[in-house]
Design a protein around this nucleic acid. Structure first.
Length: 494
DNA sequence: GGTGCCGGGAG
DNA sequence: CTCCCGGCACC
C-alpha cells in the first residue's frame, strides 16, 4: 500500500475477502483482491493474495465478502477458522460442524478457560477478523504457540479430531471413532500445520493437548509469523508475540455451551470476557473459584458445590432416589456428568446468574440419553483411559483415543528443546491422574473437579511442588512459590 | 527428611 | 501490594 497511487474510492482492489485457499482444500482464508479482469465467459475473475503470500486467481463466485457471496451461501468445513462474537468480543474459533439447519458449532479457546463450544447461526459467523480486540490479540498469541509446537514436532499431525455430530453419537462404536480419527487427522492437521500459522486451536484438540501445546509453545524458538489485517487495511505480519503462557491456568474440562446467538449472559463467557476496565494490572491474578456445571445433555445447571451438582445429577438425570443423603451414589456415576468451571471471584456472582439463565435446562430434557444405560455410552468404554471428556449438547465429544495418541507422540517428541520442560510438567499431571484414577476405579474420570481444599486435610491434595517438581518451580502457582497455600488443586481423588 | 503453608519481613 | 523465607506441623 505504498505505491502512492491512489485507488479509486470504490475500487475493489484491496478489498478484503475470503476464498478457498488453493493449497488448503476447501478451507476459506482471508485474502485481498489484487486485480480483476473479465474472463471469456464474461465472468469476472479476481487475483487474490493470501496471508501467506499465495496468489491465486479465482472466480467471482468463489469469493466471500462484501459485494460477493455471503458466508451463508457456503458450507463450512470442520476445521475452518472463523470468527464469532462472544459476549461482545470477537474471538477466533474453529468450526466443528456446520449443520443442515445452518447452525455452526464453533470451538473457541481462550487463555484461562476451557475450550468452549459455541453454536452460531451461519450468518453470525465470519471468516475474517472484523476488528482487533485485546482479547483476540491474546488468542493470536496462543495460536501462534500452537503453530510453533506443531513445527517443533516436525509437522507430525496432531491426532485430534472433531467428532462428527451424528443423530445419536453415543451409538457410535469405538471402531467408527477410530476411523474418524484417521480420516480427520490428515485434514485437520494439514490445516493446522501449514499456512495457518495463526490458526486457532483446532477444536478437536483436547484440553490436554491444548495445554501441552500452550506450554510447549511458550518456549518455542520457531519463528512462525502471524498476520492479520492492520488498521490501515494492509496485512501485517510479525514474529510470534512474546508468549504469555497462563501457567497458572489449571487444566479444566472442556466446556460446552449451547449458547444462543445473542451473545448474552453465558456464564463462563463472563469470566472469559474481559471487562472494559483494563486498568488493573492484576486483573489476571484475580482469585478464582470453582463452580460445577451439569454436563448432562442440554442441561447445564450450575451449582456452587460439588455435592449440589451431584445431587442434581443423581436425582434429575440418573433418576436415583436412593442414597439421597450421601453425596455420591455407590458407583459414583454422577461424577461423569458434571464439570468444573473456574471463574474469577469478581465475576462469579454474575456468572452464576447468567449461567443459570442461559444454560438452564433446555426444553429438550426428554433426550433419549435418559433411557440409555450408561454402559452403552461409548464414553464409558473409554474410561480405561482414565480420561473423561465432557459431552457436548452438539454431540461433539472430545475423542478419547486421540488423547492417548497425543500423549504418546508428545512423549516421543518431547525433549527436543526447552519446550519439553513445561509440557512435561503438565503431562505429569495427567499421567499421574490417569494412574490414580485407574487405580481408584476403572470409571474414575480424570477431568474431575478438585475438592475444596478446606474440606480436605492438609497435604491431601497434590501441590505444585509435587506435581511439577523442584526443577520446574516456574510452573508452580504463585502461592506455592511463595510457600503459601496452593491455589491449584491437583486432586488426588483418592 | 520431605512437604505444605502460616506468619512475618523486605521492598 | 508482591515477593520471599523462617519455621513449624505433618507425613
Amino acid at each position: 500500500m505504498s505505491s502512492g497511487k491512489r485507488l479509486a474510492k470504490r475500487s475493489i482492489i484491496g478489498a478484503r475477502v475470503c476464498c478457498p485457499h488453493p493449497s488448503q482444500d476447501g478451507y476459506f482464508f482471508p485474502c485481498a483482491i489484487q486485480a480483476t479482469r473479465t474472463g471469456h465467459s464474461g465472468q469476472n475473475r479476481y487475483s487474490v493474495k493470501f496471508v501467506d503470500g499465495t496468489v491465486a486467481e479465482v472466480k467471482e463466485t468463489e469469493l466471500i465478502g462484501q459485494g460477493f457471496r455471503s458466508i451463508a451461501s457456503i458450507g463450512l468445513k470442520k476445521g475452518q477458522k472463523v470468527y464469532i462474537t462472544l459476549s461482545g468480543k470477537e474471538v477466533q474459533g474453529i468450526v466443528i460442524s456446520h449443520q443442515m439447519n445452518d447452525e455452526v458449532l464453533v470451538a473457541v479457546s481462550g487463555q484461562e478457560h476451557p475450550v468452549l463450544h459455541v453454536s452460531r447461526r451461519i450468518q453470525e459467523v465470519r471468516l475474517t477478523e472484523s476488528r482487533k480486540s485485546a482479547r483476540l490479540a491474546d488468542h493470536d498469541t496462543d495460536y501462534v504457540k500452537l503453530a510453533n509446537i506443531h513445527a517443533h514436532t516436525q509437522k507430525r499431525a496432531v491426532s485430534g479430531v472433531i467428532d462428527v455430530p451424528s443423530s445419536n453419537p453415543r451409538k457410535r462404536t469405538s471402531a467408527s471413532l477410530s476411523e474418524d480419527v484417521e480420516a480427520m487427522d490428515e485434514q485437520i492437521a494439514a490445516m493446522a500445520l501449514t499456512s495457518l500459522s495463526c490458526s486457532p486451536v483446532p477444536s478437536h484438540i483436547t484440553r490436554l493437548q491444548e495445554v501441552e501445546m500452550w506450554a510447549a509453545g511458550s518456549e518455542g524458538g520457531h519463528s512462525s509469523s502471524y498476520s492479520s489485517w492492520d488498521t490501515d487495511g494492509s496485512w501485517k505480519s510479525s514474529p510470534s508475540p512474546p508468549s504469555r503462557l497462563p501457567v497458572s491456568a489449571v487444566p479444566t474440562p472442556v466446556q460446552v455451551f449451547t449458547g444462543n446467538s445473542t451473545d448474552e449472559g453465558i456464564g463462563l463467557e463472563e469470566a472469559f470476557d474481559e471487562p472494559s476496565d483494563e486498568s488493573s494490572p492484576r486483573k489476571k491474578r484475580l482469585p478464582s473459584r470453582k463452580v460445577y456445571q451439569c454436563t448432562w445433555q442440554a442441561c447445564g445447571v450450575v451449582s456452587a458445590t460439588r455435592s449440589a451438582v451431584e445431587r442434581h445429577i443423581r436425582h434429575a438425570h440418573l433418576m436415583r432416589q436412593d442414597n439421597s443423603d450421601s453425596d455420591l451414589s455407590d458407583d459414583h456415576e454422577e461424577e461423569f456428568y458434571y464439570t468444573e468451571i473456574e471463574v474469577n471471584v469478581d465475576n462469579i456472582t454474575d456468572s452464576l446468574q447468567h449461567m443459570n439463565m442461559s444454560t438452564s435446562p433446555a426444553p429438550t430434557q426428554s433426550h433419549m440419553d435418559m433411557v440409555r444405560p450408561p454402559h452403552e455410552d461409548p464414553i464409558y468404554k473409554d474410561h480405561q483411559y482414565g480420561i473423561r471428556p465432557v459431552e457436548s449438547t452438539f454431540s461433539a465429544p472430545v475423542n478419547i483415543p486421540q488423547i492417548q495418541r497425543s500423549l504418546s507422540w508428545q512423549a516421543s517428541t518431547s525433549g527436543t528443546n526447552s519446550v519439553s520442560l513445561q509440557s512435561q510438567g503438565y503431562r505429569s499431571i495427567f499421567y499421574q491422574r490417569q494412574q490414580q484414577h485407574q487405580a481408584a476405579s476403572p470409571k474414575s474420570p480424570t477431568y474431575l473437579c478438585s475438592t475444596q481444599r478446606s474440606s480436605k486435610g492438609r497435604g491431601e491434595g497434590r501441590k505444585c511442588r509435587k506435581v511439577y517438581g523442584m526443577d520446574n518451580r516456574d510452573l508452580w502457582c504463585t502461592q506455592c512459590r511463595w510457600k503459601k497455600a496452593c491455589s491449584r488443586s491437583f486432586d488426588s481423588y483418592a
